[in-house]
Simulated assay, not measured.
Amino acid sequence: MAEDPVPPRTRRRRSTENRPVSMADVATRAGVSAQTVSRVANGFGGVLDETRAAVIAAMEELGYRPNSAARALKLGSFRTIGVISSTLSTIGDVRTIEAIAHSAALEGYTTTLIPLRAQGEGGVKRVYSRLQELAVDALILNIEKQLLDRAEVLVPPGVPIVLMDTSPDGMHIVVDTDQFDGARQATEHLLSLGHHTVRHLAGPEDSHPAQRRLEGWQRTLEDAGRPVPEPVRGDWTAQSGYERGRILAEDRSCTAVFCANDQMALGLYRALREAGRRVPHDVSVVGFDDTADAIAYDPPLTSVRQDFADAGRRAVSAALAQLRAGEESTPRIDVVPTDLVVRASTAAPSGLPAMAIRPAREE
Rank of each mutant, 00 (worst) to 15 (best):
F288M: 01
V283W: 02
Q119K: 10
R278P: 11
G182C: 14
F288Q: 00
R29M: 15
G245Q: 02
A249P: 00
R117A: 15
V6W: 04
L139D: 00
A249I: 01
E152W: 08
V228C: 01
G312M: 03
D137I: 06
H195F: 08
P66I: 00
G225S: 13
A315V: 03
A238K: 10
A69C: 10
D169A: 12
R12G: 04
R126Q: 07
D223A: 15
A256V: 04
G76Y: 04
A99N: 05
D282M: 13
G241W: 00
V335C: 03
G276I: 02
D169W: 03
A360C: 14
E250P: 02
E328F: 09
F78R: 09
P8L: 00
V37N: 06
L134I: 05
L134R: 12
P349Q: 02
I161A: 07
H195S: 05
T28W: 11
A275K: 09
E250V: 10
V279I: 15
G82I: 01
R71K: 11
L266M: 10
G245T: 04
I91V: 15
M1I: 08
G43N: 07
D262A: 10
D293T: 10
E188C: 13
G43A: 07
E121D: 13
S68L: 11
I91F: 12
A315Y: 04
V279H: 09
Q306K: 11
A104Q: 07
L116R: 04
S68Q: 14
T166H: 01
D307G: 10
E107W: 10
R314W: 07
Q146E: 13
A30L: 03
R184P: 06
T187F: 03
S253E: 08
S345G: 06
R324L: 13
D169L: 08
E3H: 13
D289S: 12
T10A: 14
S103T: 07
P359W: 01
A58M: 01
I91H: 14
R343D: 09
G225T: 05
I333W: 00
D178N: 15
G241R: 06
G43M: 08
A104T: 06
T166D: 05
Q132H: 14
F288S: 03
L62H: 02
A151P: 08
E17H: 11
A344F: 03
V232L: 13
L139H: 02
P20M: 10
R52L: 05
D251S: 02
D290M: 07
S38C: 13
A294P: 06
M355R: 14
R233D: 09
R244M: 09
L116W: 02
S317E: 14
V32R: 06
R277F: 11
E121Q: 12
R212I: 07
T51C: 06
P8S: 03
L147C: 06
P168A: 14
R273F: 11
I247G: 12
G108E: 00
E363Q: 15
G351D: 05
R246I: 05
F288Y: 12
